[in-house]
């Protein structure tokens, strides 16, 4: 049976999702306030004029709009009996995330947050090693993510996006939980650059989040929304009682270009370069398989709630300057 997926939203993340659905031979529909024609052309999708029309013609809905629109669209899709993929964060706040889960359960539909870093093979390898006990008992973890700041303004509206912590750093908060287990406390700090300073350079941000885990492990996440043109990279170090794993996406890539000019070339992307692997396609393939009755993928809607819960605690810590206790499930 042909996969019929409706993609809602057609912004910066859309090529990765579009490519993933295309690779599965899906029949793709798209509804978006902006860029729908471009998406339709790029991915051979059918454009719909309204969400209702889209919902009438698909079985799966993939929500890749800006964060503030996730909840209403996902609710409409679930209420219409669709299975749903939702970009991260699943919702801007915990209450909304929980409401989505309740709605999915009520309608008997599947809901998956696109925590794509779980499909990056480096993190999957670390997770597998930890699960196999190769590091012994986990003790100290660090997760870093850096790149140029997003270009669309809503990312910098804290109400809309939750800033770097709820947006970019959600990936590493999720990794800390995925690899290190449930979180007990969160402490967050952030530095923001003055948008007007240094020749109108944008609102660069650096976030630092420290967590304690219920199993006693401790973790640190560092995120950078840097100046335009800053390359994307990510790294981690996971230490346990019998070993230590580390990874840096800038090293051991198997490719090195050395040139007379050191000028960095900006490819205009704030997504990581994925050449020898495609975690986005792998993620969507797993979601599609689960929708078709296959095994549960490596992320659940409850993981989506958990990540939002931690990010929300981090934002509260940022506001109050205090360490915030995360409620137990």
């Amino acid at each position: 049976m042909t996969l019929r997926v409706g993609v809602v939203g057609a912004g910066g993340i859309s090529p990765t999702h579009g490519g993933g659905w295309q690779a599965l031979g899906a029949e793709i529909g798209v509804y978006s306030l902006e860029h729908a024609p471009r998406f339709a052309e790029r991915h051979g999708a059918t454009e719909y004029a309204s969400l209702e029309e889209l919902l009438g013609n698909v079985d799966i809905v993939d929500v890749i709009t800006p964060t503030p629109a996730h909840v209403e669209i996902a609710k409409a899709a679930l209420a219409a009996g669709k299975d749903v993929v939702c970009e991260k964060p699943m919702a801007r706040n915990l209450a909304d995330a929980r409401e989505l889960v309740a709605l999915a359960e009520q309608h008997g539909r599947k809901l998956y947050p696109a925590h794509v870093v779980r499909w990056f093979p480096q993190y999957a390898a670390a997770k597998a090693a930890v699960e196999a006990g190769e590091l012994g008992q986990l003790a100290v973890m660090r997760f870093n993510r850096a790149g140029q700041m997003p270009r669309t303004p809503w990312f910098f509206d804290d109400e809309a996006s939750g800033g770097i912590i709820m947006d970019q750093m959600l990936h590493d908060l999720d990794q800390a939980v995925w690899i290190g287990g449930p979180v007990a406390t969160v402490y967050a700090t952030e530095t923001r650059g003055e948008p007007g300073a240094e020749g109108g350079l944008g609102d660069t941000r650096v976030g630092l989040v420290t967590m304690t885990h219920r199993n006693g492990a401790i973790s640190l996440c560092r995120g950078i929304w840097g100046a335009p043109g800053l390359p994307f990279w990510y790294s981690f170090q996971v230490a346990g009682t019998t070993g230590l794993l580390r990874y840096d996406s800038r090293h051991e890539t198997g490719f090195q270009l050395t040139r007379a000019s050191s000028a960095a070339e900006d490819d205009g992307s704030y997504l990581p370069s994925v050449t020898s692997f495609d975690p986005y396609a792998a993620e969507i393939a797993d979601f599609a398989a689960a929708f078709a009755g296959g095994p549960e993928p490596r992320v659940t809607m409850h993981d989506g709630v958990e990540a939002v819960k931690i990010a929300e605690a981090a934002l509260e810590s940022l506001r109050t300057g205090r360490t915030v206790t995360v409620e137990e499930n």
């Binding site: 008992q137 003790a139 100290v140 406390t185 402490y187 700090t189 492990a217 401790i218 346990g240 009682t241």
Partner: peptide, 14 residues
């Protein structure tokens, strides 16, 4: 001005 720290005693505890 302000310091926050977390610690544990998991590694080498044996």
């Amino acid at each position: 001005v302000v310091v926050n720290a977390v610690k544990n005693q998991i590694m080498h505890a044996e």
